[in-house]
């Protein structure tokens, strides 16, 4: 074969196929999103840089979940453009993993078999995927728990497995829909810490939806604020780094939190 196997699929995509960036650039331009022809958000513009962690806050019903499902490719945009690296998103694929609030693990599969699933879909051999799944379980602090069934472990542990499963597929973007929403405060704080640590190595773009402002400020490089109703362009704030839990009372953080809460109208 003399012709290169796959040339770039769109002119706007960055050229070198040899070393693709780990993170995907996700872009919405004048996009209307919603289900079955009913727009939840209209005229949405958002540019999420490769490797960035964008947290999205807003009251319930403002279209946060719809936004994630659109970015995943599960919902087509009703109007406008939704791109990844300049290529329109036409459907779901392994590049953009979705993490849900709860109950997304297949209950008949053991924790390890759940983590193996994206690898099996990619055609990774049995031994290899078993080893990799064990590795991921270890990274989320669940080594030795692989043989258990999802309903036999706690909600926090299930969410760690979801994280492991999503990352095992080596996605270039991870879309998280209130993943810690069903957890108690203490577990949640631990999970945020874990997430920050685990994500560091992957370089994946992250869109993290939450209704917890502090969580959004702690995790995000930027915070997008979605209002209710249609026709809103989100207000996007930069969060200064470095930050940690002890910076909770830091004047800059307090100021930022106030800004967020004010623009959310609470």
């Amino acid at each position: 074969m003399t012709t290169p196997p796959e040339t770039t699929t769109a002119s706007t995509a960055p050229a070198p196929v040899l070393a693709p960036p780990r993170g995907t650039r996700l872009t919405l331009r004048d996009a209307s999103i919603g289900r079955q022809g009913t727009p939840v958000l209209e005229g949405l513009a958002l540019d999420i840089a490769p490797g960035e962690i964008l947290t999205v806050v807003g009251p319930s019903g403002c279209g946060k979940s719809t936004l994630l499902r659109t970015l995943a490719g599960l919902l087509p945009p009703l109007a406008g453009e939704v791109d990844r690296d300049g290529i329109p998103i036409t459907g779901p694929d392994a590049e953009r993993a979705l993490i849900f609030q709860d109950d997304a693990l297949l209950p008949w599969r053991t924790l390890r078999a759940n983590v193996e699933l994206p690898l099996a879909i990619k055609g990774v051999g049995r031994r290899e995927r078993r080893a990799r799944a064990e590795g991921w379980l270890e990274r989320v602090g669940l080594d030795g728990h692989g043989a258990r069934l999802p309903h036999r472990v706690s909600g926090g542990q299930r969410q760690r497995v979801q994280l492991a499963r999503a990352l095992a597929g080596e996605p270039r973007a991870v879309l998280m829909d209130e993943p810690f929403g069903a957890l108690d405060a203490q577990t949640r704080a631990g999970m945020q810490q874990l997430l920050a640590e685990v994500l560091r190595g992957t370089g994946a773009t992250v869109v993290f939806v939450t209704h917890d402002v502090d969580e959004a400020l702690f995790l995000g490089d930027r915070v997008a604020l979605l209002g209710t109703g249609t026709g809103r362009v989100p207000h996007v704030l930069d969060v200064p780094r470095p930050r940690d839990r002890t910076a909770h009372d830091d004047p800059a953080t307090v100021e930022l939190r106030r800004t967020v809460l004010t623009s959310l109208g609470t």
């Binding site: 995943a72 779901p92 392994a94 699933l117 879909i121 597929g169 879309l175």
Partner: peptide, 9 residues
């Protein structure tokens, strides 16, 4: 469940 599997490709 289905959405999860579809976003794994």
């Amino acid at each position: 469940w289905e959405e999860a599997v579809r976003t794994m490709g």
